[in-house]
Computed example of a mutant assay.
Amino acid sequence: MKNKGILSVTAFSLLLLIFSACSTSKVAAPDGGGKVKVSGNWTVQNIDFEGISSKGFKVTVFDDAPYSCFVGSQWNLVASGNGTYTLPAGQDCVAGERPIFWGVATENGVPTFSFKKMPGGVKPAKITDGYKLTIKSVTDNSLVLQDDIYFEGKTIYINYHLTK
C-alpha cells in the first residue's frame, strides 16, 4: 500500500512539473505568425456563441457567474502565471476580483489557455481542477478564447473576445 501512495505522489509531482514547464506567457499565434505575449491586462469586450443562439440562453461559466457577467471583466495575467480576473457589478453578478494561476501551451498543434481559480492562500499545486480554452486568435492587442461545452447532445462554443 505504501508504494501506491508514493507512486501517486510521484505521478502528481510529474504532472505539476509538466504543467509548470508548459506555463509561459507566450504562445505561437494560431495563424503561424510567431510567438505572441499573452500576459498583460485584458478586457472581455464581448462574448458570442457558435452552435446555439444566445437569445434566452443562460449558462454559468467557470463555475462562477452567468456568461453575461464576464462582459467587461478585467483579466490581469502576470508573466509569472499568477493573475486575477475581476467581474463588474451587474444583474446576477457578484462583482469582485478572483485570483487565478494561468498558463499557455500548445497541445497537438493547438494553442491553449488554462487557468485554475486560487481560493485564499492555496498553492497552485494543491488545486487539481481548472479550465482549458482554445486560443482561436491572438495578436499584441486582441485575444479570442474559445470554450467548448456539451449541451443537449451537441458541442457548442463560447467565444470570449478580449482586448488590451
Rank of each mutant, 00 (worst) to 15 (best):
residue 94 V to W: 11
residue 64 D to P: 04
residue 78 V to Y: 06
residue 30 P to M: 04
residue 5 G to D: 14
residue 69 C to V: 01
residue 120 G to R: 13
residue 13 S to F: 10
residue 161 H to C: 06
residue 7 L to K: 14
residue 138 V to M: 05
residue 155 T to Y: 09
residue 43 T to S: 06
residue 110 V to C: 05
residue 97 E to A: 14
residue 141 N to M: 09
residue 12 F to M: 11
residue 42 W to P: 00
residue 149 I to K: 13
residue 156 I to W: 01
residue 146 Q to N: 09
residue 62 F to R: 07
residue 130 G to C: 00
residue 64 D to I: 07
residue 89 A to Q: 13
residue 109 G to P: 02
residue 147 D to S: 15
residue 53 S to M: 09
residue 128 T to P: 08
residue 84 T to Q: 09
residue 56 G to C: 02
residue 107 E to K: 15
residue 34 G to H: 08
residue 41 N to M: 12
residue 160 Y to D: 00
residue 152 E to W: 05
residue 144 V to D: 00
residue 151 F to H: 13
residue 85 Y to N: 09
residue 110 V to A: 08
residue 26 K to M: 14
residue 153 G to K: 06
residue 79 A to H: 07
residue 93 C to P: 00
residue 11 A to H: 09
residue 54 S to Y: 10
residue 121 G to H: 09
residue 103 G to D: 00
residue 123 K to C: 11
residue 134 T to N: 10
residue 41 N to P: 09
residue 70 F to S: 03
residue 12 F to A: 13
residue 21 A to V: 08
residue 117 K to H: 05
residue 116 K to Y: 04
residue 146 Q to V: 05
residue 162 L to D: 02
residue 6 I to D: 14
residue 78 V to C: 04
residue 28 A to D: 14
residue 70 F to A: 05
residue 149 I to P: 03
residue 87 L to V: 11
residue 19 F to H: 10
residue 128 T to A: 14
residue 3 N to C: 12
residue 90 G to I: 04
residue 153 G to E: 06
residue 58 K to M: 12
residue 101 F to K: 12
residue 32 G to M: 05
residue 127 I to A: 02
residue 51 G to F: 01
residue 21 A to N: 08
residue 129 D to G: 12
residue 65 A to V: 01
residue 8 S to H: 12
residue 86 T to K: 06
residue 65 A to F: 04
residue 18 I to E: 08
residue 43 T to V: 05
residue 91 Q to T: 14
residue 115 F to R: 00
residue 138 V to P: 01
residue 105 A to D: 14
residue 108 N to D: 15
residue 12 F to H: 12
residue 117 K to A: 00
residue 150 Y to G: 13
residue 8 S to T: 13
residue 112 T to G: 05
residue 101 F to V: 09
residue 150 Y to M: 13
residue 86 T to A: 05
residue 36 V to M: 02
residue 84 T to G: 04
residue 100 I to Y: 02
residue 30 P to Y: 01
residue 150 Y to I: 12
residue 108 N to L: 15
residue 12 F to D: 12
residue 67 Y to R: 11
residue 16 L to K: 12
residue 15 L to I: 08
residue 89 A to Y: 10
residue 33 G to E: 14
residue 81 G to E: 00
residue 98 R to T: 11
residue 99 P to G: 08
residue 73 S to W: 02
residue 16 L to D: 10
residue 26 K to G: 07
residue 62 F to E: 03
residue 128 T to G: 10
residue 113 F to I: 00
residue 122 V to G: 04
residue 2 K to S: 08
residue 103 G to M: 00
residue 140 D to C: 08
residue 35 K to D: 15
residue 142 S to P: 08
residue 72 G to T: 02
residue 60 T to Y: 13
residue 144 V to N: 01
residue 65 A to R: 06
residue 73 S to L: 03
residue 87 L to Q: 08
residue 2 K to L: 12
residue 62 F to Q: 06
residue 115 F to I: 01
residue 134 T to C: 05
residue 41 N to T: 15
residue 79 A to D: 06
residue 96 G to C: 07
residue 82 N to M: 07
residue 16 L to W: 12
residue 145 L to H: 00
residue 57 F to I: 07
residue 98 R to N: 14
residue 124 P to F: 03
residue 129 D to E: 15
residue 133 L to T: 06
residue 129 D to K: 15
residue 77 L to G: 03
residue 110 V to G: 03
residue 138 V to E: 01
